[in-house]
Every structure is written in C-alpha cells, then in structure tokens.
C-alpha cells in the first residue's frame, strides 16, 4: 500500500509529466518557430521536474523502481494528474489559456510549498519556482496579445478561457487523501490559494479585455485517478515502446 506522501508526490509528478507530454506534441507544429521552441523548452522543464519527483517516490518506496517505471508502466487509473493537463492541445489559444491559468496557479502553489516541512518538497519548490516564473511570463504575454489583438484572436482566447475554466476547480480542492499532509504543514492547502489566483487572473483578463468566467460546476477526478476519455489516448503513444518492448533501453 502506497503511503500518503508518495501518493501526493506522484500527483505532482503526473501533472508535470502529462502537461509536458501535451506540450511536446507541439514540437514541430508551433505557429511560429520561436513558439515551437518556447513550448519545447517548457515541456523539458515539466518532464525534468517530473523526473525529480518520480525519483523521490522511488526512493521513499524503496522497491528499486526508476522514474521510467512510473512514467511508462502505470495504467490510466494509476495516474493522479489534474484533468486539465490531459485535455487535447486544441488551437494555440487553448494551449496558452491552459499554460497561463495553470502556471499562475503553480507559481502560487510552489511559493507556499517552499515552506514545506518536507525537505525534499521545499527544495523542489525553490528550484521549480524559478522555471515556472518564466512560464507565467510567457503565457501571460500571449493572453494579452491575443485578447487585445484582432477580432479573431480575441474570440479564440475568450473561447479557450471559457472552455478550460470548468477544469480549474479541482486545483483548489482539498482532497481527503491530502488533508493529513496539509494539516501537518507538508503541503499547502490548495483552497487557500484561490483568492490570490483569482486576483492575478482577473488583472490579466482586464488588461487582455477578456471576460473572466463565473465559476460554477467544476470537473474533478484526476487527483483520484478518474480521468477523461483523452487520458488513454495520451498514454498509448507515450507508453508504446516500453509496453511493446519491455525494458528496452535508449
């Protein structure tokens, strides 16, 4: 039986891996060369962070697993990433809307995580925050450019924000699985991050002339392994090699 801390770190790692996998799909398909490179850079950050986190889970579990075992040999229900991470990339506006909203959340989250009583998590947070600040800056610039751009770009970014909005709710839920860690100061209490996140997002929306959606019913499930139908389709190409040729090496 996996402990609560390992399970939680897997959740953090899975967010990074799945978002990284999605961003990597843009490689060679970006709208302009600079953006292609930017998204590949972010994917690299995400997958690098996932590697650090999976290694830590392996250390705690002590069963001699490697980061690749977690990435390539688990099935859909064993992944604990937020649903927003696995949604298809859509158009560039959708990718950017997800990048922006999640990076804004993750920067706040990591700032809190730097105070963690778990040394590894605190160290991970300090390291990753430096990278995530660049992600916020990049995505925010694009939200502004599209929102305050042409009629078409404005329409697309507004649609994108509306579409992703119902998937942001679970980022701010305090799941029962994690309460113990939250109460003992190991991880932040996500619900407490909501006001500041809304504040930051509102500022960006105002500047971008985008209407911030009103929060209503929210999707959730990823944290506990219940995914959208997109998850299996994402894992299939990602895991193909290790599934078809077990233990093959690069």
């Amino acid at each position: 039986m996996m402990g609560v801390l390992e399970n939680y770190i897997l959740h953090l790692a899975d967010n990074q891996l799945i978002l990284g996998q999605r961003l990597a799909e843009w490689c060679g398909h970006g709208p302009v060369l600079e953006e292609d490179i930017a998204l590949s850079n972010f994917a690299l950050d995400n997958i690098g962070q996932a590697t650090l986190l999976y290694k830590r889970v392996a250390e705690i579990e002590g069963a001699g697993k490697s980061e690749d075992d977690y990435a390539f040999l688990r099935s859909e229900r064993e992944y604990f990433n937020f649903l927003a991470m696995e949604l298809p990339n859509g158009d560039y506006a959708f990718t950017i809307a997800r990048q922006y909203l999640f990076a804004e959340f993750y920067a706040l989250y990591l700032s809190e995580l730097t105070k963690s009583k778990d040394t590894f998590l605190a160290e991970y947070a300090v390291k990753s925050l430096k990278e995530v600040k660049y992600h916020v800056q990049h995505a925010r610039d694009w939200v502004l450019r599209m929102g305050d751009g042409t009629e078409e770009s404005h329409y697309r970014i507004q649609q994108a924000v509306n579409h992703i909005w119902n998937f942001t709710g679970e980022w701010f839920m305090d799941f029962e699985t994690d309460l113990e860690l939250m109460q003992s100061g190991v991880v932040p209490t996500n619900s407490k991050l909501l006001p500041e996140w809304q504040n930051e997002v509102q500022k960006t929306c105002l500047e971008a002339t985008v209407v911030m959606p009103v929060s209503g019913w929210m999707h959730s499930g990823g944290r506990n392994g219940k995914h959208t139908e997109y998850m299996g389709h994402l894992l299939t190409p990602m895991q193909y090699l290790q599934r078809a040729h077990p233990n093959s090496k690069w």
């Binding site: 994917a43 690299l44 950050d45 995400n46 690098g48 962070q49 650090l52 390291k127 990753s128 990278e131």
Partner: peptide, 8 residues
C-alpha cells in the same frame, strides 16, 4: 546540481 530541472 542541475541548472534547469530538465537540462539534458
């Protein structure tokens, strides 16, 4: 120590 987390 890694420069960037994902530095190849």
């Amino acid at each position: 120590t890694p420069t960037y987390s994902g530095c190849p």
